[in-house]
Computed example of a mutant assay.
Amino acid sequence: MIDLYTWATPNGRKISIALEEMGLPYSVHCVDIRNEEQFADSFLKISPNNKIPAIYDPSTGASVFESAAILIYLAEKTGQFLPTSLGERTRVLEWLSWQMGGLGPMLGQLNHFVNIADEKVPYAMRRYFDEAARLFRVLDQQMEDKPFVAADYSIADMAIYPWSLPAIDPVSEQTDQRFENVERWHASMAERAAVQAGMQVPTA
């Protein structure tokens, strides 16, 4: 049984979705980042960057941190949701990298300046709303003729969905833009039982 160290964040939910989709048994260990539990020495041994999520796999003795690395590890362990052919595999890894390097960080900054920062900085909020809208346009264009991000359902969808779902309405409202292909994809993702279950982890 895989040990999942997580909290109720988009990055954490990527992994619970993947574990549910892959049918892997797992045990949830809540790391309450509100109380800085991620800085505990015991967690540092599993996640050297003091960030959730992280996993420990007793069957291999491997501990893995960083959500993209965990997704790839689980996909390769199970042979699911990451193609083996070079071209198809590259497409999935492109969009996984896009989420890690673009969508996630930009939406994280947007959330910080809009919802967390003590000082409201109009320039910062506008900057990140505009960049979020640009990224949603990129995703919307990609989804124009595809049911999933890289054509077939993959770890790229699992990585992007927990970030894009809560952000799309605020970004649409603030920028007066619609992302209909992304909305269609969101609806499709929400119908998957494993996605529904993974989005509820942890329950605390």
Rank of each mutant, 00 (worst) to 15 (best):
A204H: 14
W95R: 00
S67T: 09
F43Q: 08
R126H: 12
A68I: 02
P48F: 03
G87Q: 09
Y73V: 02
C30K: 14
I72F: 03
N49F: 11
N181P: 07
P48A: 09
Y153R: 06
S172Q: 09
Y123M: 11
L86D: 00
L135Q: 09
K14D: 07
Y128C: 10
F148D: 02
L71Q: 07
I33C: 09
V92R: 00
S172R: 08
A75P: 09
A151H: 15
E119L: 04
E173N: 06
I15T: 12
A124W: 05
I33G: 07
T78P: 02
D130E: 15
E88Y: 03
Y153P: 04
D145N: 14
R127C: 01
V121D: 14
M100C: 14
I52H: 04
S47H: 09
G23A: 03
Q177D: 11
Q141F: 14
M22D: 03
T90F: 13
Y161L: 07
M1H: 06
D176N: 15
F81T: 03
W163Q: 13
M158N: 02
P48S: 08
A197F: 09
A156K: 06
P122Y: 15
P53Q: 00
G87S: 11
D57H: 03
K77I: 03
Q141H: 15
R184M: 13
H186G: 01
N49C: 01
A132N: 03
P202Q: 05
A204R: 15
S164V: 10
T78L: 02
L71Y: 01
E76V: 08
N49L: 05
P83H: 01
R137Q: 15
A117T: 08
I46Y: 14
F39A: 14
A167P: 10
L82D: 02
Q141G: 11
I15C: 01
L86R: 12
S97M: 13
S172G: 09
D118A: 07
D41S: 14
A197Q: 13
E191W: 01
P105D: 02
I46S: 06
V121W: 14
A40F: 10
I168T: 07
E119M: 13
L74Q: 05
F148N: 04
P170I: 00
D41F: 15
W7I: 07
S188Y: 00
A18I: 02
S42F: 15
S42V: 15
T6A: 01
G104I: 00
F65Y: 14
A54Q: 10
I2Y: 11
V31A: 11
A150Q: 10
P166D: 12
Q109W: 00
Y128P: 05
G198M: 09
D169Y: 15
R184I: 02
I160A: 15
M100R: 12
F39D: 12
T9H: 08
A132L: 06
M100D: 09
F136G: 12
N11C: 09
G87C: 05
A132R: 12
Y128H: 05
D130S: 13
V92F: 03
G102D: 11
K14S: 05
A117F: 00
D41A: 15
Y128E: 04
T84H: 09
R91V: 12
G79P: 03
E173Y: 04
E94Y: 04
K120E: 13
E20L: 06
G87I: 08
T78D: 06
F113G: 00
A133N: 06
F65I: 04
H186C: 06
F65N: 13
D176R: 10
K120R: 13
G101V: 01
Y161V: 02
F65L: 00
S188A: 14
